[in-house]
Amino acid sequence: MNVDSHIFMTRSNVNEKNEIYTLSIDCGGGGIKSGIVNNHNELLSDSLRTGITYPFSPADLINIISSHIQQHNFSYDRIVLGFPGMVRGGKVIYTPHYIRFNGPHTQISAELQQRWNGLNLQEFIGQHFNKPILIINDSELAASKVVCGQGTELMLTLGTGLGCSLFVNGSLAPHIEMSHALFSQEQTYDECLGEIARQTLGNSLWNSNVERAIISLWPVFRWDRLYLGGGNSTHLSSSTIKNLEHFIHADDALATLEIVPNISAILGGHKAWELASGQEFI
């Protein structure tokens, strides 16, 4: 999305401390989280989470956001929303979870598919809350908090599915939905690494899948920095992390691996806007 002049903050948007308050919303397949952050990436409100009840429509998303805003009871200047799926210019190209009757990997609803895919989410949310808004992928929002702006930085988020975002020298590369690529036989990365797989396989086999998956992605990206985040990053075993570090360092001694907390998506709200300024978020 080109960040045009009409959505930059005016002087009236800035409080007495010359700070901009950003409502940061992290949308996942299982729940919606939000918090308000300042210019220093500090959380000023409680971090709220509301579980999703399927079927889940755009109107349901608005209702949850409205409820969170009331609970935060904190003035904010702008919104950033991390959305699960492919978004371009604020428009939903495809979302894998919200188009289904009963959540991830269940039957697709033709009605929900029509409501979500192709929706100009930026306009839809903007009309309800009358605030400047930035819509990006949820993995991109989490990455915004931690990327340093040097070299090739890859964020992989482990949650309902697999999130993926790539930054090169601080600029966001075109979005790649790695989760829908085939990983093993007829199963996608999402099906092998997502929450349903973890619950079905157990943590040990799931960790093995994660390890094999990341090793398979090394020749594709050859990152300088790899960040592993999302709610299920807490289930990564120490042996998996050590094995991955050993594998990567055997090929590139300078490449790094960092586990980042799930709160990064909320804390990345302000920085996401800064990264969007002067570049096109795709």
Rank of each mutant, 00 (worst) to 15 (best):
R100P: 15
F221Q: 05
Y54G: 04
P174G: 08
E258P: 00
A253W: 00
G30Q: 09
S239C: 10
R212E: 14
S66D: 05
Y54L: 04
L43C: 08
Q71S: 11
N232I: 04
D251K: 09
S34K: 07
D251M: 09
N169R: 02
G202F: 00
I25D: 14
G159F: 10
I214R: 06
N209S: 03
I25N: 11
D224F: 00
E274D: 02
D138V: 02
L182F: 14
T240S: 13
I125H: 02
E177G: 05
D4H: 14
C164N: 15
Y189M: 03
F83N: 05
Q127H: 11
S264K: 06
L112H: 09
G51C: 09
L166M: 03
H246N: 12
G85A: 07
Q122M: 04
D46V: 08
Q114V: 14
F167W: 00
K17E: 11
V210F: 04
T200G: 00
G35A: 12
G29E: 12
T22W: 12
G89F: 01
I125E: 01
N209I: 02
S24V: 10
A197W: 09
T160V: 06
T22P: 03
F124K: 01
K91L: 07
C27L: 15
F167N: 00
A59Y: 00
I7P: 04
E191H: 04
R49E: 12
I20W: 03
T200R: 11
K33W: 05
W116G: 14
D77S: 15
T53Q: 06
H235S: 10
L236Y: 08
M86S: 15
H40K: 12
F183I: 06
G82F: 05
L112T: 10
E111V: 15
S45Y: 13
L158N: 14
Y227L: 01
Q113L: 15
R49G: 08
G269I: 05
S75H: 13
R78Y: 06
Q199F: 05
N41A: 11
I93R: 14
R11S: 14
Q122Y: 02
Y98S: 12
V147F: 00
L43Q: 11
S264F: 10
S109L: 05
N38L: 09
P174V: 07
A276S: 08
V92L: 12
L43T: 12
Q185Y: 03
N232E: 11
I266N: 01
L162A: 12
P84W: 06
G230I: 06
N207A: 03
N243R: 02
L217N: 10
I93H: 14
D46A: 11
M9S: 15
D46Y: 04
G85N: 08
L48F: 03
